[in-house]
């Protein structure tokens, strides 16, 4: 069965023009000498012909008119490259990468590399002083801004859903 599939696959590659030079030469040789390959090749060629010759489906006669009426309401949007500043994208990327690298460096710095007991993790999380991170005013402000932003976002999502729901009704 697998052999059959492989043999068909090779023939399809040959028909689609995807075979390498060596494969092409060996298949051509087989097609001349092996009746089984020749028959299969003819079968697949016929299927390919059928697939290519099927007609395209056509939409309604008014299709182009409908599209043109619809696009008359719009303008072509400016190309994305004109309003997306690559420097800003790079800036955001650099900020996040720096943040991640900073956390990693800090994390690795906390590890005890001479620790021998493999049954326990190198960083004892129970002894980790989380308070150190959250008693700083700057961090607290940062967290608060994030919470407010999260609430605003949630409010907008819910408002959109409410509008959509009312429209559906």
């Amino acid at each position: 069965m697998n052999e059959q599939k492989n043999f068909e696959k090779q023939l399809w590659d040959y028909i689609d023009g995807l075979s390498s030079h060596e494969e092409k030469a060996s298949i051509e040789k087989l097609l001349q000498n092996n009746i089984e390959w020749k028959n299969k090749y003819d079968e697949l060629l016929e299927v390919q012909q059928l697939l290519r010759s099927s007609d395209l489906e056509q939409p309604s006669m008014r299709f182009t008119k409908n599209v043109m009426e619809e696009i008359a309401k719009f303008h072509i949007a400016p190309a994305t490259k004109n309003y997306i500043n690559n420097r800003i994208i790079w800036g955001i990327g650099t900020f996040f990468i720096t943040l991640i690298v900073g956390f990693l460096i800090y994390g690795f710095a906390q590890m005890d590399w001479n620790f021998q007991d493999t049954s326990k993790p190198m960083v004892d999380l129970s002894k980790f002083n989380y308070g150190r991170f959250f008693n700083n005013n700057l961090v607290n402000v940062f967290m608060m801004v994030n919470v407010v932003l999260g609430l605003v976002l949630l409010d907008r999502v819910l408002a959109n859903k409410r509008k959509k729901f009312q429209r559906d009704i």
Binding site: P59, S60, V67, H75, I76, A77
Partner: peptide
Amino acid sequence: DAEEIAQDVFVKAYRALAD
């Protein structure tokens, strides 16, 4: 549905043509 979607495709393509 196909007719509606095909129409939508052409409208989207028009709007994004500058891209």
